[in-house]
Design a protein around this nucleic acid. Structure first.
Lengths: 144, 144
DNA sequence: AAATTAAAAGAGTTTAATATCTTTTAATGG
DNA sequence: CCATTAAAAGATATTAAACTCTTTTAATTT
C-alpha cells in the first residue's frame, strides 16, 4: 500500500508525538529503536519530514526531533504525500496515462470508490488522533 | 497500489479476454502492443499466469494465449494474489508483524475498513465483468 | 573559545523490481 | 519427419528502492 519509507515515516511521526509531551526531544537512535526501523535510513526520512516542516528539529546536545501542538494536526495524507507523492491521488490503478473520468479504464469506477474512501480516511486522521489511541493503552506501536 | 507486474498482468488478462472470443489465440507481441507493456517482461508474467492456470496457452504455429468461458470468472483478486501475493490480505499497513486484532497498531482499525472494501471489490469483480465493460464501448484499455 | 553532541548533507552500497536477451521445448503445417 | 512457429525456461542487465557510512553544520555545555 505504501513504501517502506512511508511506513517508517508514519511510525516515526507517531513515536515522536508520543515522546514529545512538553517539548521533549527525541533522537534518531531512540526513534529507530522505538519503531524497529533502520537507524540511518530513518535519519534520511526524518531529514525529509523536517525540511517539509512536518516535525521540528534541533541540533546539538539535548537536540532531536519534536512536535508541537500544531504538528499534531498533521494528517496521514500529509505524510504520505511528503514521502510517496500524490500518485494515490492521481494515477490510474492500471498505470494508464490516458485514463480519466471521460476516458475511463475498465477498472476505473471500481477503484474510484476505494480510492475516495482511502483518501478521505488519510485526510481525516491526524497524528494527534493516533497519539490519543496509543495513550488509551489499547493500541500498540512496538513490534515485540 | 499494485506492482507494475500486477498492472501488466491485469491488463494482459483483460486484453486476452477481449481477443479470445471463439477460442482465438493471442501472441505475446500482440498482448505487449495492445497493453503498452514491455514485450519480454509481459512474457515472463504470462508464464506465471499460465503456470497458475489463469489462462491457457498453446505453443507452435497459431499458438498463443486464450481464455475459455470458465477463465472469465477469474477475479481481480485471483490475479493480484498470483502476482503480488496475499500481502494486502495479511500484512499490517505499518509493517508491524505483531499487529493483529488483539494487538492492533494505531492505524489498524482505520485501514481495516479500507482493506475490507478493497478486498471485497477485487473478489467480486471478474475479468468477464471488465470484458463486458470494454464491449460497451464506454471504457478503454489502450493508452493513446 | 573549545569540546561535545546530534541533526543535515552527501556519497556509497545492497537488494529487489523491472526489463531484456538467448536457448530450449512443444506444437503445427507442409 | 523436417521446418517453422511461439511459448517456456533460463540467464543477464538495468533501475529504483532500501539501507549504510562518512563528513559537515549547527547547536549546547563547560
Amino acid at each position: 500500500m505504501f513504501s517502506k519509507s512511508c511506513e517508517y515515516a508514519i511510525k516515526a511521526m507517531i513515536f515522536i508525538a508520543q515522546k514529545s509531551k512538553d517539548e521533549a526531544r527525541v533522537g534518531i537512535k531512540e526513534i529507530a529503536k522505538g519503531t524497529d526501523s533502520p537507524e540511518h535510513f530513518v535519519a534520511k526520512i526524518m531529514q525529509d519530514l523536517s525540511r517539509r516542516k512536518l516535525v521540528h528539529s534541533v541540533k546539538g546536545p539535548n537536540g532531536g526531533f519534536y512536535m508541537d501542538h500544531f504538528d499534531l494536526k498533521t494528517s496521514l495524507a500529509d505524510i504520505v504525500k511528503a514521502i510517496d507523492g500524490d500518485s494515490i491521488y492521481k494515477d490510474c490503478v492500471l498505470g494508464l496515462k490516458a485514463c480519466s473520468e471521460k476516458n475511463p479504464c475498465p477498472v476505473h469506477n471500481e477503484f474510484k470508490e476505494i480510492k475516495k474512501n482511502l483518501i478521505m480516511m488519510i485526510e481525516d486522521n491526524t497524528i494527534g488522533d493516533f497519539n490519543e489511541k496509543l495513550d488509551s493503552g489499547k493500541f500498540f506501536l512496538r513490534n515485540k
